[in-house]
């Protein structure tokens, strides 16, 4: 009888807890205008070069919460959000949040390099001159960002620029780190 009571209480507790956690996740994502997936899919893998020629694969970040941002040097809103991306990387980088920005500029390595220098960017900036990765991620406007969970699955889609070091953003990353 006690066992039945135990399972019943556990079941009721979970029925309350699960929606709260889901609602909490939805709330922190909604504040940042994140679109959550209907079916979580593995983020398309890629191997791209940095401006120094180092090859980086998405798989290198497995187990971490990842923000992938697509940008271009000709996109003003993209440039506006780069400093806040650097700040959130400095705040949460050590806690398991990785930031990757993929430039879709065609053969503008020097200019991307200049931006890295100007904005003192220390997170990985990758080059996609052939636009292959951009197409794999169905990028139709800039800037566009994706949130990837530590399980390597896509957890969110963000269209447009954001203040990445705002309190809402920190809450969103905190939720992302908890999501499996």
């Amino acid at each position: 009888m006690n066992a039945i009571k135990y399972y019943l209480l556990t079941f009721i507790f979970l029925q309350i807890l699960i929606p709260i956690s889901v609602l909490g996740h939805e709330d922190s994502f909604a504040k940042m205008g994140v679109v959550s997936p209907k079916n979580e899919k593995i983020a398309p893998n890629f191997i791209l070069e940095t401006v120094t020629g180092e090859k980086i694969s998405l798989k290198d970040f497995k187990g971490k919460a990842v923000l992938i941002n697509f940008w271009a040097t000709w996109c003003q809103p993209c440039k506006n959000e780069l400093p806040s991306m650097q700040r959130i990387y400095e705040i949460l980088g050590s806690e398991g949040v990785e930031v990757i920005a993929i430039s879709i500029d065609r053969n503008k390595k020097e200019r991307v390099e200049q931006y890295i220098k100007n904005y003192n960017l220390t997170f990985p900036i990758l080059l996609d001159p052939s636009q292959k990765v951009r197409k794999d991620y169905f990028i139709l406007g800039l800037p566009t960002s994706y949130l990837i969970g530590s399980d390597g699955k896509l957890k969110g889609f963000i269209s447009g620029a954001r203040e990445w070091d705002s309190n809402d953003s920190k809450e969103m990353f905190s939720t992302l780190m908890r999501l499996q």
């Binding site: 205008g33 679109v35 959550s36 997936p37 209907k38 079916n39 979580e40 899919k41 983020a43 398309p44 991620y137 169905f138 139709l140 406007g141 566009t144 896509l154 889609f157 269209s159 447009g160």
Partner: peptide
């Protein structure tokens, strides 16, 4: 306008 509502998330990636 997309500049008002943003772009739609891609169905192909589960959205």
């Amino acid at each position: 306008s997309r500049r008002y509502k943003g772009f739609s998330a891609p169905k192909q990636l589960g959205f």
